[in-house]
């Protein structure tokens, strides 16, 4: 099974390293033909406005939306979560969403870089803690009935899932702890449609 990391802009290198440490093959995705060769994809953190423009100019937006619709396993972190959401606030932000998760994401909701923080979160299903890194992070202000909440911070969801789509408002790729990526690899392996290549 081949994992891809969307490499238009942002922390794609750190995601690749984490996936490779797990013994998974990971390649960078920058074009529609790159996308066609992977069985699961990570949408990294970075700037969602920048990624929106590059998704369009590289001709990736429509094939990616179609693949996610068809059940391509996908894991979005921070800006990646924003791209996966169905609604983005504040309104007027120049972000085009894939609508794969019925959630409302509020960009930069904690404030500027000076308000960025690290804090342990508790994963609901196994009651274990994870040191989460929040950088100019979004907040999930609303969750639709189809979306399962896997972890919260102060009552607000920070890790969510719907079918093969998983997303975090924080950055598991910046910690040495691979457990969140491990979850995605398990999720992708168990739900991926037959190899697309």
């Amino acid at each position: 099974m081949k994992f891809g990391v969307l490499a238009l802009q942002g922390a794609f290198g750190a995601h690749c390293s984490t996936l490779r440490e797990l013994g998974v093959s990971a390649r960078l995705v920058r074009t529609p033909s790159d996308l066609a060769s992977v069985d699961a994809i990570v949408l990294p953190g970075g700037e969602s406005t920048t990624m929106t423009k590059l998704l369009t100019s590289s001709g990736l937006f429509d094939p990616l939306a179609a693949a996610v619709d068809d059940g391509l396993p996908v894991f979005g972190t921070c800006a990646g979560l924003i791209l996966l959401s169905s609604t983005v606030e504040p309104e007027g932000a120049d972000v085009r969403c894939l609508g794969a998760l019925d959630v409302t994401a509020v960009r930069n909701a904690y404030g500027r870089q000076i308000d960025s923080f690290e804090q342990p979160i508790t994963l609901r299903d196994d009651d274990e803690t994870f040191d989460a890194v929040f950088i100019r992070a979004p907040v999930i202000a609303r969750v639709g009935p189809s979306v399962e909440v896997l972890a919260t911070l102060d009552g607000r969801p920070v890790l969510v899932r719907r079918g093969p789509v998983m997303a975090a408002t924080f950055h598991p790729e910046l910690t040495a702890d691979p457990r969140i990526h491990e979850r995605f690899v398990r999720l992708a392996t168990s739900t991926a449609p037959a190899s697309r290549s």
């Binding site: 942002g10 922390a11 000076i114 923080f117 690290e118 342990p120 950088i135």
Partner: peptide, 26 residues
């Protein structure tokens, strides 16, 4: 914001982390 005692700000990881988010960009 929740358990303030366990919250950290201004760490090296947060600083380098923002730099990481700017990779591949202009």
């Amino acid at each position: 914001m929740g358990d303030h005692l366990s919250q950290q700000q201004g760490t090296l990881r947060l600083k380098r982390g923002l730099a990481e988010m700017l990779k591949g960009g202009v």
